[in-house]
């Protein structure tokens, strides 16, 4: 007998999922089952980074992750930005640098950078943080304002 239920933590709350097919992507679970539309759907092939979320604190492409793979795990999305210190910090840096235009890639960038700060620490070198964002595409800003936001998000930022 197959069990089609699943549970995971999303932004600090338990999400109990019923009738969940094994091949459902985390991106679709978040957006269409849980209604958390902050995580964006871009390419669905892992090339653009717009769907980036944190799974147990690590940057993860939700379009290439099956929800089954993260059962029992803890997922953080942009919708939970107000509760997470690193997300709040990055969000403030993006505001100060006006590091967005259309904003569609923004949740992915913010979450990915927050993940890098958690993983490497707030004083990680700018180059290392920028390198960690190579998988996120932005078509509007030319990345210049995003680079300014990255510098502001670091601990020893002026």
């Amino acid at each position: 007998m197959t069990d089609d239920s699943a549970a995971l933590w999303v932004n600090g709350s338990v999400a109990r999922l019923q009738g969940m097919p094994d091949d459902e992507r985390l991106l679709d679970t978040l957006r269409w089952r849980l209604g958390l539309k902050g995580t964006k759907e871009g390419c669905r092939t892992g090339d653009c980074g717009a769907c980036t979320v944190l799974v147990d604190g690590k940057s993860t492409l939700s379009c290439l992750t099956l929800t089954r793979e993260v059962e029992g795990g803890s997922v953080t999305t942009i919708d939970g930005a107000s509760d997470d210190p690193e997300l709040k910090r990055v969000s403030a840096a993006f505001t100060a640098a006006e590091a967005l235009q259309c904003g569609y890639c923004t949740p992915g960038f913010v979450v990915a950078l927050a993940g890098l700060l958690k993983e490497r620490g707030r004083s990680a070198p700018v180059e290392e943080l920028m390198d960690g964002l190579q998988g996120n595409l932005c078509r509007c800003t030319g990345y210049a304002a995003i680079a300014r936001a990255v510098a502001l998000a670091r601990e020893d930022a002026p």
């Binding site: 957006r31 539309k37 930005a81 006006e98 967005l100």
Partner: peptide
């Protein structure tokens, strides 16, 4: 003045065409 769309976009609360439900 700062752009007025920063907050809504950074909160993931802006509803794009793809988000219509």
């Amino acid at each position: 003045a700062p752009r007025s769309d920063l907050a809504v976009k950074l909160a993931g609360a802006a509803v794009y065409g793809m988000d219509l439900d």
